[in-house]
Design a protein around this nucleic acid. Sequence first.
DNA 1: CCACCTGAGTGGTCTATACCACTATAGTCC
DNA 2: GGACTATAGTGGTATAGACCACTCAGGTGG
Lengths: 244, 244
Amino acid sequence: MLNKHSPVPLYLQLKKLLETQVTNGDLPPHGRVPSERELSEQYDISRMTARQALTELIQEGRLYTSRGKGTFVAEPKIRQSVQSLTSFTEDMRARGFTPTTRLVRLEQTTASDTIAARLRIPDGSPVVCIERLRLADDEPMALETACLSFEGVERLLHMDHDGSLYAVLREHFGIIPCEAVQEFDAVLALPRERALLQLNEGSPVLRIQRTTFDAVQRPFEFVQSIYRGDRYRFVARLVREGDV
Amino acid sequence: MLNKHSPVPLYLQLKKLLETQVTNGDLPPHGRVPSERELSEQYDISRMTARQALTELIQEGRLYTSRGKGTFVAEPKIRQSVQSLTSFTEDMRARGFTPTTRLVRLEQTTASDTIAARLRIPDGSPVVCIERLRLADDEPMALETACLSFEGVERLLHMDHDGSLYAVLREHFGIIPCEAVQEFDAVLALPRERALLQLNEGSPVLRIQRTTFDAVQRPFEFVQSIYRGDRYRFVARLVREGDV
DNA sequence: CCACCTGAGTGGTCTATACCACTATAGTCC
DNA sequence: GGACTATAGTGGTATAGACCACTCAGGTGG
C-alpha cells in the first residue's frame, strides 16, 4: 500500500516496495512483475508513475522488460556502470546500496619494482598507500589499494579519506585524471584478501589494476581493486570515438 | 530539428542532438542546457519527451540538474575508448603472440531469455551463434560465443569466420558497432569451458559479456568471452572525452 | 491437425496539463 | 544597505489518455 500523504514520492514508494519483494524472494529471478497497468490499478496511481518506478529498477539491473511480454526480475548481481572513474561510494548509492568505507591502511612506504614501473619512479621511491575496504549494506564488496606518487604526496597522510580521492586531488593538488589504463583479470583471492572480503578458499575475484595519468601524461596513481567474484560485476560503457 | 516521421523516437533524436552539442563544445562544461520547457517549445515536443531525453543524459553522467536552477553540462569524464572493441587477433599480435582461431560452433538457434533480453528480441527468436576458441601460440586462451540478431543474420551461416566478425558485418550487412556495454566478472570455469581451455578444476576465469549496439542504438550482438585467468589480462585504455 | 486471424494484454512512445518545491531576480520599504 | 516580498523560471512529481508495436492464447476454417 502506498501512502499518498507521505513526503516520499509515490513512484519511489512503489520502487522500494518492489525492491523489497525482489530482495525477499516474493518476486523470484525471472518471475513476472505485475504490469504497469496492473500496478496502476492496484495502487491507484497513474501508469506513468508505475512506469517510472519500474524504469529505475530496470536501469539498475534489477528488472528487465520485453515488449509485449512483460517485466521480469533479473538475476541478482551487483553491477557497476563506470561511465567514468566515479568513486565506489557514488556507484553503490546509484545502485541503491548503502556504501561505507573502512580505511585499512594509510601509510607512506617505498615503491616495489612493480609499482615503481607503473608510476615511472625509481625503485624504492616514497609513495603513499591508501587501502580501503569497500562495503555495500555492511557487506564487504571490494578491497582497494591506491599507491600515489606526485609532488607533496605526503600531505595525503594528514587528510581525510572517506570521500572521493579524486576530489581531494583536484582541490588540494590540482591533479585531474585525464587518462587511465585499466586491466582486468580473474584470480583466486589471497589469504589476506579472503579474510578481509569474507570469502571461502577457492573463491575467484575480479582484479582491476588501473594506472591513472594527469594532464601531461604523468602517472600519479596505481590502484589495485579486488572485487568479490560472486557479488560484483564490472560494467563499462563503450562508445565509438568521434561519433555522435 | 527533429524528424517526426523518423522511426527513431523523438526523445532519442533530441538526446543525440544534445549529445552532439556537448561533444563539439557548443554546450561547454557547466554551461546551461535549455530547460525542459524551452526544448519543448523549440522542437515542438512535449515537455515529458524533452525530459526523457535529458533524463537519459543525466543518468549517463553527461548532464546534471539542480532544482530551481536548471540543467547543466557535466565535466567531461574519462570513458573507455572503443579501441577495446578490437579483435582478439589484433590484440594477440600486439602482444607478440601468434593468434589462431578454431571454430567450435556455428549454428542458428533460438534465443534464451537472457540473450533475448540483451538483444531486445522476443524469447525464442532465431539468433546465429558463433563460438570460437581463441589460441595464442597454439595454447587456448579464450572461448568466445557471439550471438547475433539482425535482419538477414542467417546469411552468416554461410560465411567464413576466421577473421574479423566486425569486418564481415560492415562489408556484408552495413552494421558498424557504435556503442557497447561490457561487463566483467570473475567466475570459476564450467566443465565444458575447462575442457576447451585446458584448465584444472577450481580455475578462475575472467568472463566478459558485451552487448554491442549499432548506429541507432539497436543491440545486434551479445558476446560472452571466457578468458583463462592465469594467462590473460584484459587491458582497457581510457581517455578523457573530447581528447584524441 | 495446422495455419491464420482476432482479441486481449504487454511495454514503448507521446501529448497535455497541473501542481509542488526550489532558486534567482527585481522591486519596495525601513 | 539590508530585509522582505512577489514574480518568473526551474526541475520534480503526478494524472489522464492515446496510439504503436509486440506477444500469446483461443477460436475458426480448411
